[in-house]
Design a protein around this nucleic acid. Structure first.
Length: 274
DNA sequence: AAACAGGCCTAAA
DNA sequence: TTTAGGCCTGTT
């Protein structure tokens, strides 16, 4: 039994980091709010509590695995967003509406695996499957009297069979998970190398994985490998692009941070559809 | 009850 | 290179 000292730190101002938008914009699946809007979850092997108060965002955890980097706070999103203004009035609306979203720098394997699970699923079900995956095969973490579970490393899942994943009720995605986990574990798929590679090469390599197509590969690139120019297009994005952008619009025109623009557009499109 | 969900795979033009 | 059908599971 080791004693830990809980620490609280201020992460950012609420204008710079909006935790509701950031956690609810569909990029992550393991942060959950309670009745009073306090979020709890685990990332980078640590459990934490995150909340907003007095114009600031605070985080409490037993140790700091690098929360600032996780929230990408070294990056000036307002400055970057200037690249997205003047494209169209609609784009301006998206930027204004999404201000405060941060692209979380999630762990590569967690991002890849989570978005494999996400295919043809809605968010509640994705969250359920991911949670069962972590509870079944992750490591327990005790924090503030509750037990949390880390995201299971690829090496752990590589030793399992599809049958072992039956309790997850993730359907045909089980084979994809096992296959990807084995590729990562045996070194065939080197995610760290991909985060250093260029976005395009990384995308191509990811797509070689069984069960990983263009959409999932782009999500892994953007949310797990730090490739901010990655531009995932799902049904929501397709609709938004069709309705609000010229038919020949090339996302590359948004520049090296196109992925952030994508998230603004996506978040706005989803909010409209509800 | 049948269709559809934040895709992808395979087979067939 | 594009297109159709099937796929697990869950919800409407």
């Amino acid at each position: 039994m080791t004693l830990t000292t809980e620490k609280t730190m201020r992460l950012a101002g609420t204008d710079e980091l909006d935790i509701v938008k950031t956690f609810e914009c569909g990029q992550c699946f393991r942060w959950n709010a309670d009745e009073s809007g306090v979020y709890r979850g685990t990332a980078l092997g640590a459990a934490a509590r995150v909340w907003s108060a007095d114009g600031g965002v605070y985080i409490a955890s037993d140790f700091d695995p690098g929360w600032r980097d996780y929230f990408d706070l070294g990056c000036d999103y307002d400055g970057i967003s200037l690249n997205f203004t003047g494209i169209s009035p609609y784009m301006d609306e998206c930027v204004a509406f999404g201000r405060g979203i941060r692209i979380l720098r999630q762990e590569p394997w967690e991002a890849l695996c989570s978005f494999i699970i996400s295919q043809c699923n809605n968010i509640p079900r994705i969250k359920g499957i991911v949670e069962r995956l972590c509870q079944g095969f992750g490591e327990p973490l005790s924090f503030e009297g509750d037990t949390y579970y880390t995201f299971p490393p690829a090496e752990t899942l590589a030793g399992l069979s599809e049958k072992d994943l039956a309790p997850l009720r993730c359907g045909y995605r089980a084979a994809y998970i096992i296959s990807a986990a084995r590729a990562v574990a045996d070194g065939t798929l080197d995610l760290d190398a991909l985060s250093c590679a260029c976005c395009e090469d990384s995308l191509k390599t990811l797509k070689n994985c069984y069960g990983v197509g263009t959409k999932v590969a782009n999500c892994a690139n953007l949310f797990g490998l730090g490739h901010m120019e990655a531009f995932p297009i799902d049904v929501w994005m397709k609709r938004a692009l069709n309705e609000h952008f010229p038919p020949d619009f090339d996302p590359a025109a948004l520049g090296p941070y196109a992925g952030l623009a994508q998230q603004y557009i996506f978040y706005y499109a989803r909010s409209e559809g509800k």
